[in-house]
Structure formats: structure tokens, C-alpha cells
Write a protein that binds this DNA or RNA. Sequence first.
DNA 1: AAGAGACCCTGGATGC
DNA 2: TGCATCCAGGGTCTCT
Length: 276
Amino acid sequence: MPELPEVQTILDALTPHILHQPIRAVALVWRGVVDRPEPTLFSAWLTGRQVVHTARRGKYMLFRLDNDRWLILHLRMTGKMRVVDAHEPWRPHDRLIFHLAHGRDWRFEDQRKFGRAYLVEDPAEIVGALGPEPLSAAFHPDYLAQVLARRTAAIKSLLLDQRIVAGIGNIYADEALFRARIHPLQPGGTLTPTEITALTQAIKTILTQALAEMGTTLRDYRRPDGSVGAFQNRLQVFRRTGQPCPSCGTPIQRIVVGGRSTHFCPQEQRLKPIEH
DNA sequence: AAGAGACCCTGGATGC
DNA sequence: TGCATCCAGGGTCTCT
């Protein structure tokens, strides 16, 4: 569910509540949430530790502990974070709870059980294969041109490949492709240098705007205090099937690309014939 | 190597 | 009302 802007917003809100608070105990409500190490070790290694630094990489949240190990969390589709008073009743989908020293709980809630927690010595074990951060200087047109060269898959699918660029999900892929006026099924290797430059800039612009709006709330995404984002009011094509394109009025079309719902304007995002 | 599809889960919305 | 089907913002695994 959450993509880069949502993960960053959640982490920013969460950090002041959990930083330098010793974890008095861990409640592993559903053991499957832990990917590694085995759940018993996971709890044992976290107990008594405290988070001394937080960071985001792609859609992962990284928490450096005072013993130089790293707790890493991924919210996947329906994961949420909350910090609440310890005596608040648990919710049905609470999966992992950290009892903090100041008497509050840091809770990870996840209806669909896709979210995962990792505890590792080297974060590269989890995030090492990710592509560059889209808002960093490393993500520039020359880089994108290089990784798209000779690729035949649909550009939409390639934007969702976290090894190419980290943090883009279904919403912002569709929105960026619309802003750059590129058809989602265009094979990655057939984009012109002009299109690649436009796409690079569109991704940076969309993500920057979404960050300023604190993310997009369609249903599940909430900030740790329960409030919603505002970027859903700025969406041009995502989940607007049949509604007029904001630019030309043509009905927005929905297709499935790589198994994911994909929304675009068939008038302004034309599929180009393959050049030889 | 790269690409397509199944799969992991739960629950809300929609259709009959 | 009940039941079936489709859909969901992500990532991994298998097969080709």
C-alpha cells in the first residue's frame, strides 16, 4: 500500500515517539510477521535495546539500534504504525507490539499479513539490491536510459521493479507516466531520450508533491496519529477509470499490466510503433 | 537474463 | 439475505 511518500510520512511522524526509548518487551502477536532471525531470537535481541536512528530506503523503514543491529520493517499493502498508550486495547490486526519505556506501545498493524520485520547486522542484506532513490541526484536521465536500454518489458512494469528505482508503486507509476505522456505498455527500451528525461522529471515532481501532501489515502493508509494524506485529491488518472482526462477530456482507461491495475489517457499517452 | 504468472492473506464492494 | 466473484497501494518465487 504505502509507497515512498507514505513511508516517509509515517517514519517522520513515528520517529520522535520511539527514538531513545528502550524496548521493555516485545509482543509477537502473529509470529509470521518476523522474517528473520527466528521469532524467539528476534524478540530476545530487541528486548532492552533502543532505536538511535531512523531512515528510509525505498519502501523500507530502517531503525538502527544501540547495539548496531538494524530493525527493518516493510508495510507492504495494509501495514500501519501507531504509538498508543500501553493500556489501549489491541486491535484485531495488531501483529507486533513493542512496549516502550515511557509507557506507550509502538504497534504494527497489518490486516493482510504481507508486512514483514527483519533484524540484521547489515541492512544491505535486505535493501542492498534496491535501485537509487528517485529523489536523489543518482536518479537522473542518463542512469534511467542505461537501465532501460534493450528492455522489452512494459515501462509500467519496469517502474515497479525496485532494483531499477526504489520506492515507486502503482499509484505514482501511473501518475508519473501520465505526467510524462508515456503509454504504460511502451517497451522500456523504446523510450526516446526526450521521453526518458520527461519521465525522470515527472517521477521527481510527483513524488515531491505527494510528500508535501503527506501521501495518498485511498483506504488503508494512515499516518501514525490516524490522519489521512491529501494527494488523493491531486490524482490525475489513478483509479479514475471512465472519468475525463484532466487535460483533454478523453475517458481514462484501465488495463492490467504485469498483473496490476493501470490507468492512463488513451489520447495523450499513445503507444508508439516499434522503431527498427 | 528477462519476462509472465501464481502465490501469499483478509476483507470490502459489487453482482446475481 | 446469502453467495460468488472481483478487487486491493507489494514483493517473492517458479517456470519458460
